[in-house]
Design a protein around this nucleic acid. Structure first.
Lengths: 243, 243
DNA sequence: CTGTGTTCTGGTCACGTTGACCTTAACTCA
DNA sequence: TGAGTTAAGGTCAACGTGACCAGAACACAG
């Protein structure tokens, strides 16, 4: 009953400025393989499951270790276990997907971080990945795009306060489709997932938009009777920050 | 990286006559544990993953071996891997859920089948199960009930031809809620998943209902870019049957 | 043979949601 | 002061849904 390696991998999503247009675009951090199976090819961040830790904890740990980002949302995606998916032996991968807020993408410079082997890619223009990770990413993208339409997960990609225009841009970037501002407003406001702070953003050359905040009492996504993964522990939270 | 046992379990759903009322009710077959962890308690059918077989194949195999039923639908549900879910060591379980048509529930009498340790239970009145299988079943039930409302999986629980009244009873049994016959008819017919055979069912003391058949060109459920599990091989298909 | 009870089948109606579109508000900048 | 911009609120038609109604087509009792 052993002989089967158990790994976790995570598809991490964040909105980053497009390298050419500069507009926010859905992006994924990848890790370059430095060892034999698929050496030199890009792959999803991940690692072996420690026998003492849960699958979700294992995902957060390997995710932070390899990419340095701190996710705002983590959910199990699917378990991939085709017998031939790794040429070096049987490996079953429990895959998670995660969302990261722009402010949490710290540009790491600490020891143990190899900038040459970790890089962000535009989600719709990835290179051919190692293992079956092309399929994994395709499925994760489908899940994210499906879920952003019926749940409030977009908050996992945006800061704590925002204008409805900014929130709409998140949805547009994920769905890769322009949305009607007025209809988007109506939909979001009637959903009750969002609350106006009362403040307005000054400085634009137009009418100052209201600031909003997500209603923290509402769940970010409906997982049914499944308990959500525990929040990721923060190594160093800026004191005085009211997140 | 070993030390972690990898298992599969399956939550199998079928409609069977309620032991008291006789009306069709959502039911689940369970297996009584004959070995140490949770000995004597009922648990989901399953077993260890063979290093040579895929996860889906492993689920179908263990499912047939222990319960004898042949599923019409099989889908991965979730992977459970809490460190303490098995008292004898670390076990990660990839859980599938399956649907079985009434005609496929053969009452097994062959050797190797222990009727005393396999039994069907009403899904909403299960005993307290081994391991974390109570949670597993709760999640599977939620998924089934959610999915029956927006997909055509109900065909996995019904024979090849049926009246809309019979199909409605399947939905009612799954959702545990009565549905308006006229509205149900409108919804199903406009979905295009079902085709009238042209025949009618005689014999009832009322207007003879049309017979329908599922449109086999339409997928049973939308899994996104994920390939559906391969159809379960039939040990002995009745020849001449046009399934 | 006729009435009654049953389900089947097609229909109407009110209501809520959605996409398309319009209008005014409120700001900056030339 | 006017032009340009986005914000914010509104209308309207189309659509899907739940509640409900009514005739159709059978079996059965009397």
């Amino acid at each position: 009953m052993p002989e089967i390696g158990l790994a976790v991998s995570t598809v991490i999503f964040a909105l980053r400025p497009h390298p050419e247009t500069g507009r926010p675009v859905l992006s994924i951090p990848l890790v370059r393989r430095t060892r034999d199976p698929f050496e030199g090819r890009w792959a999803l961040p991940g690692g072996w499951v420690d026998p003492a830790e849960s699958l979700g904890t294992s995902a957060s740990r390997t995710l932070v270790e390899t990419t340095g980002v701190r996710p705002s949302y983590l959910e199990q995606l699917y378990t991939f276990g085709a017998p031939d998916r790794s040429p070096t032996g049987r490996v079953v991968s429990v895959v998670y997907w995660a969302l990261v807020r722009p402010e949490q993408i710290g540009e790491r410079t600490d020891a143990g971080f190899d900038a040459h082997n970790v890089a962000w890619f535009v989600a719709d223009a990835l290179p051919h990945l190692a293992f079956d990770h092309d399929d994994v990413v395709a499925y994760a993208l489908w899940r994210l795009r499906t879920k952003v339409e019926y749940s409030a997960i977009a908050q996992g990609l945006i800061g704590s306060t925002f204008t409805l225009s900014e929130l709409r841009q998140v949805h547009e970037a994920v769905l890769d489709r322009v949305l009607d501002p007025a209809n988007f407003r109506r939909q979001v406001e009637s959903s009750g997932t969002v609350v106006a702070t009362g403040e307005h953003v000054q400085g634009g050359r137009h009418r100052p938009p209201r600031l909003y905040r997500y209603d923290t009492s509402a769940p970010l996504a409906d997982l049914g009777p499944l308990a959500a993964d525990p929040p990721i522990p923060t190594p160093a939270d800026p004191p005085g920050e009211n997140s």
